[in-house]
């Protein structure tokens, strides 16, 4: 563990102690002296922590001072998976703020904060573990796929609904990747989202048959329901039903389906380049 002694906070604590900190707590804040809790940061922000400790840490020659070790790590990483930051309050009631823990550029995601009271390197009952305490780039999310999703999340689990053929058949062809830029004006950052897609042949007979199958699945019906769909097709369109079942034509159009977005990390500035 790398330990960083922070002394400025203690001096400030004797002069003007913000009133938001209470006993034994830790949260993220901007490094502006306000110690106001913040749950969302931009990728170019600096993240500090604030709060209050209830215990002391050893300093030297048997002397102990109010303080703690704080660890900030991506959610799920575990308390001691990253280097910690050591601080001492140097008096006061154990309050601390402006303890810098992350510097830009930040990696988007959610973060946990672990406050190791007693600085003993052990996760025990004295400590605080704030899961998903804050998010970096949290306001930026790629939107749902444009148009029809490859996986619509229906009970049958079937995909590419309306395309001729089971799910997304091999007769579908790759569609040009769609790239969409998403802004977060508040944080002055953006995210690039891309959507991979497939284009498939469709026909009224295929769309009707898919709807029929999906209704059978949603109803938890038996094979008689599904076979009824097949018979409806055969008695309406005849032999092409067999071709459609394998993804073949004839088609009356095409449908393009997109998969879930692939988002890049948030980047400073809006899509237009300015804020």
């Amino acid at each position: 563990m790398s330990r960083l002694l922070v002394v400025a906070a203690g001096i400030a604590a004797l002069l003007a102690m913000p009133g938001v900190a209470h006993a034994n707590q830790v949260y993220a804040a901007h490094c502006d002296g306000s110690a106001f809790p913040v749950d969302t940061f931009g990728v170019m922000d600096t993240v500090c922590v604030a709060g209050d400790v209830d215990f002391t840490c050893p300093v030297r020659l048997g002397v102990r001072l109010p303080g703690a070790d704080v660890y900030v790590m991506p959610t799920g990483g575990g308390p001691f998976s990253v280097p910690g930051v050591h601080f001492e309050t140097l008096g006061g009631a154990g309050s601390f703020w402006d303890i810098e823990v992350l510097r830009p550029p930040l990696v988007p995601g959610t973060y946990d904060i672990f406050l190791d009271e007693n600085c003993d390197g052990v996760q025990d009952g004295d400590d605080l573990y704030e899961i998903m305490s804050f998010t970096v780039g949290g306001m930026l999310e790629c939107t749902a796929p444009p148009g029809s999703p490859i996986n619509p999340g229906i009970p049958s689990g079937a995909e590419c609904r309306g395309a001729c053929g089971g799910d997304c058949p091999s007769t579908c062809t790759p569609a040009p990747t769609l790239n969409v830029c998403v802004d977060d004006a508040d944080l002055c950052e953006h995210m690039d989202c891309s959507y991979a897609g497939v284009t498939c042949g469709t026909h009224m007979g295929c769309r009707t048959h898919d709807d029929c199958y999906d209704a059978c699945a949603a109803a938890g019906a038996s094979w008689t329901c599904w076979r009824g769909c097949d018979l409806d097709c055969l008695n309406t369109y005849g032999l092409p039903c067999g071709s459609w079942a394998r993804g073949g034509g004839p088609y009356d159009g095409t449908l393009t389906f997109y998969g879930p977005p692939m988002g890049t990390a948030s980047s400073p500035g809006l899509c237009s380049g300015s804020c």
């Binding site: 148009g147 026909h203 034509g249 004839p250 088609y251 009356d252 159009g253 095409t254 449908l255």
Partner: peptide, 12 residues
Amino acid sequence: MRRWLLSSVLLA
């Protein structure tokens, strides 16, 4: 959604 009336062209 774009639809092409292929079948009528093909089969006519």
